[in-house]
Simulated scan of single mutants.
Amino acid sequence: MEFCPTCGNFLQYELPHMGRPARFFCPTCPYVCQIEAKVKIKKKQRLVKKEASLVIPEKDTENMPKIDVPCPNCSHGKAAFQQHQIRKADEGPTTFYKCLNEKCGHQWSGD
């Protein structure tokens, strides 16, 4: 989508006609933007996937509800959990778990 730098309206596309190249034009003011045949890549940027860190503070696990669920790290059978709505409202909440094994403390999430 392109917008007019003069008045801010949505630019409309005009097909090439009689040797004139395709272009964008503003329907309310005389602004016209010619479309180049080649696409220019201004800057390449490498996307780096960041590791998500789930943080449930140690002191908060005392007041959190507990559940019988095996830890994927140490197989301990109990974990504290919290639920948060992190996606759209029509989707279920995500449950965040923290292993109650003092030597482990692994945190993970599940739907």
Rank of each mutant, 00 (worst) to 15 (best):
Cys33Asn: 13
Met1Tyr: 06
Glu91Arg: 14
Tyr97Leu: 07
Val69Arg: 12
Thr95Trp: 05
Cys26Gly: 01
Lys38Ala: 01
Lys98Met: 10
His76Asn: 08
Ala52Ile: 09
Pro65Lys: 03
Ile86Asn: 14
Glu91Pro: 13
Ala80Met: 06
Leu47Pro: 02
Asp68Thr: 10
Lys66Gly: 12
Cys71Trp: 14
Asn9Ser: 08
Gly19His: 09
Arg20Gln: 08
Trp108Ser: 04
Ser75Lys: 12
Glu91Ile: 10
Thr94His: 11
Ser75Gly: 14
Glu102Ala: 09
Gly92Phe: 11
Gly19Pro: 03
Cys74Ile: 07
Gly105Lys: 13
Pro21Phe: 01
Thr95Gln: 11
Asp111Gly: 13
Lys50Ile: 09
Val39Arg: 05
Glu2Cys: 03
Arg87Ser: 13
Ile67Glu: 08
Asn63Ser: 14
Cys33Lys: 08
Ser53Ala: 04
Gly19Leu: 09
Tyr13Asp: 08
Leu100Glu: 10
Gln45Val: 08
Asn9Ile: 01
Cys4Tyr: 00
Gln45Lys: 11
Ser75Thr: 15
Asp68Cys: 12
Pro16Glu: 08
Pro16Tyr: 02
Phe25Ile: 06
Lys66His: 12
Asn73Pro: 09
Ile41Pro: 01
Lys50His: 09
Arg20Cys: 07
Ala52Tyr: 03
Phe25Ser: 08
Cys26Lys: 01
Gly19Trp: 15
Ala79Asp: 01
Glu51Trp: 04
Thr28Ile: 00
Cys26Val: 00
Glu62Ala: 09
Pro57Ala: 07
Pro57Trp: 10
Lys50Pro: 12
Ile41Leu: 06
Met1Trp: 03
Lys98Phe: 05
Val69Asn: 09
Arg87Cys: 13
Val39Cys: 02
Ser53His: 06
Phe24Arg: 03
Ser109His: 08
Gly110Cys: 04
Asp90Cys: 10
Ile35His: 02
His84Met: 14
Phe3Gln: 00
Ala89Val: 15
Arg87Glu: 15
Asn9Gln: 08
Pro21Leu: 01
Gln107Pro: 03
Tyr97Asp: 05
Phe10Cys: 05
Cys99Val: 12
Met64Cys: 13
Gln82Phe: 14
Ile56Asn: 00
Lys49Thr: 07
Arg87His: 15
Pro93Asp: 09
Cys74Leu: 10
Met1Asn: 00
Arg87Pro: 09
Thr61Asp: 07
Met1Val: 01
His106Glu: 12
Lys43Ala: 10
Phe3Gly: 00
Ser75Trp: 15
His76Asp: 13
Thr61Met: 06
Asp90Thr: 15
Lys43Gln: 14
Ile41Trp: 03
Cys29Val: 02
Leu100Arg: 10
Gly8Met: 02
Asn73Thr: 12
Cys7Gly: 03
Gln83Asp: 07
Leu100Asn: 06
Gln45Asp: 06
